[in-house]
């Protein structure tokens, strides 16, 4: 279990506001890491840095020995990093099956994809996936007609289809009902071990249900790291959440 992903002294500022201020974070292979922290702690920005949406002003991101900070987004994705955004981002005019097909980016070049058989070859995979995310009935419907929860699952399914080493999830249960959240936690159990996951989440119940190690961020830095019980007992963490009703209500 060596270091898989390593963020070293990452800083980034937006119009003078330091969103990240010397962040250090390492994640091992196969881990399911939860990233929590008060609003504005820089959790989403940390994911943005890893997947290349935001470039750090200083610091380095290493993934399996590759320096990610100098690569473009699609190159980072090809290196094995997948991202789920907070706002569900699927292709609304395409059907569920087509969405999953786009996500199955085995060979991402234009010329390699100028063929018809590419789409037929993945059909069995896509049907298996649709079963996993419970959308078998909806395969041929445009994604625009899915409910919010279904859209979230479709996007998670797309990340599975993409089959990358490292998956970054930003609030996968936001806006979900309790039942949907439970189903999502089950989905995560299936992903565990096959992929390395970093999950930004507010719902502490969910975090406790899925997480091994929790990293707590505050003011663009790593504040504490450990199991749920450890971080809850951590004095610095208690102080950071002061006034917001404690970590469980964050």
């Amino acid at each position: 279990m060596t270091t898989h992903l390593d963020l070293r002294d990452i800083s980034v500022s937006f119009n003078g506001f330091k969103a990240l201020n010397g962040l250090n974070l390492s994640v091992r292979k196969g881990e399911l890491r939860c990233l929590i922290g008060p609003n504005g702690a820089g959790k989403t920005t940390a994911l943005d840095i890893i997947c290349g949406k935001v470039k750090p002003s200083t610091g380095a991101v290493t993934f399996d020995g590759t320096a990610l900070q100098d690569l473009e987004e699609h190159e980072i994705a090809r290196a094995g990093v997948g991202r789920k955004f907070q706002v569900p981002s699927v292709f609304r005019d395409l059907t569920v099956a087509e969405n999953l097909e786009v996500a199955r980016a085995r060979r991402p070049g234009v010329w390699a994809n100028l063929r018809w058989d590419v789409r037929r070859a993945g059909r069995a995979d896509i049907e298996r996936l649709a079963e996993l995310i419970g959308l078998t009935e909806h395969l041929e419907r445009p994604a625009a007609y899915l409910s919010h929860g279904q859209t979230q699952w479709l996007e998670i399914g797309m990340l599975v289809a993409q089959d990358v080493e490292l998956i970054l999830m930003d609030e996968p249960t936001a806006g979900m009902t309790a039942q949907e959240t439970r189903k999502t936690a089950e989905l995560f159990e299936r992903l565990r071990g096959k992929h390395t996951l970093i999950v930004v989440e507010h719902d502490m119940g969910f975090v406790k249900a899925i997480g091994d190690i929790i990293s707590v961020m505050h003011m663009g830095q790593l504040l504490a790291e450990g199991t749920a019980a450890e971080v809850e007992a951590h004095p610095e963490v208690r102080r950071a959440y002061l006034g917001s009703g404690g970590i469980t209500n964050a």
Partner: peptide
């Protein structure tokens, strides 16, 4: 067509948009 729907998202699947 995916690029038409959501250009930004396609990049993160590894396609050179």
């Amino acid at each position: 067509q995916a690029i038409r729907d959501h250009e930004g998202r396609v990049r993160y699947f590894g396609y050179d948009v």
